[in-house]
């Protein structure tokens, strides 16, 4: 074989090696980038911090985890929270621990729920699916509409009742039936309640309607 042929083969070989190295590094980067590990770790850490905060709240409370978590399953026990994907081996589950005061309890299992809630009832912390309603259904809390198609939701004595209606393919809400806001906002525009925000329960409802936009039959 002459020198020129040998050097061509060497150059080709070297190019192949470079391409192989580039492919391996890109594959590694892509594998880590597509992995759900960071999301699972964040969810576990954030839920742990939420539980610590709930322990500090005197009395009862409910808080929802703001991220959509339909890909994951959760197990809450007396001292730990586990986050995993269905079918995953237990050795890749993300588990974080926390410490509850004496006589406190924690339990709950949720799988494939869009949103999850942590509720503190007496000295028990429960992990559950939020707004126990199927997607693209009108939340049952809204009840039945009046003759004008307006739903009323009363979140309690300390909250102003809010009104909801389904108009032109999307939901709107109002504190007074005069000024209507799209569910894309949680701030009142106009009227007596201008620039105010609803209570947390109504904000949850508004967010739900914004996300799922459940249609009304025979609109």
């Amino acid at each position: 074989m002459n020198k020129k042929a040998a050097s061509v083969i060497m150059i080709t070989f070297e190019i192949l090696v470079v391409l192989l190295v580039v492919y391996m590094t890109v594959s590694i980067g892509k594998a880590y980038g597509e992995s759900d590990q960071v999301t699972k770790i964040n969810a576990a850490e954030e839920l742990r911090m939420m539980i610590d905060t709930l322990v500090a709240v005197p009395g009862d409370a409910i808080v929802s985890y703001p991220q959509e978590v339909s890909k994951f399953s959760f197990i809450l026990t007396q001292g730990s929270i586990s986050v995993f994907k269905k079918g995953e081996e237990e050795n890749v589950w993300i588990v974080t621990t926390f410490f509850l005061p004496e006589n406190y309890d924690a339990e709950g299992t949720v799988s494939e729920a869009n949103y999850i809630c942590l509720e503190k009832l007496n000295k028990k912390i429960i992990l559950k699916k939020c707004l126990d309603v199927a997607d693209n259904e009108v939340p049952p809390q809204l009840g039945s509409p009046d003759s004008g198609g307006i739903y009323t939701y009363d979140a309690g004595v300390l909250a102003t009742p809010l009104y909801y209606r389904y108009q032109d393919g999307s939901w709107e809400w109002s504190p007074d039936k005069s000024y209507w806001m799209s569910v894309n906002t949680i701030v009142v525009s106009g009227g007596e309640f201008d620039k105010q925000k609803p209570v947390q329960e109504n904000i949850q409802l508004i967010r739900y309607l914004q996300k799922f936009n459940p249609p009304i039959e025979n609109e």
Partner: peptide, 27 residues
């Protein structure tokens, strides 16, 4: 780098745990 992305500063964790000392009557 991925582990650092998910790291929670210990000050935040300690602060949240310490909330119970002055807010929970069981503490």
């Amino acid at each position: 780098y991925r582990n650092n992305l998910a790291k929670v500063p210990p000050e935040i964790r300690a602060e949240l745990i310490a909330l119970r000392f002055t807010s929970n009557p069981d503490c």
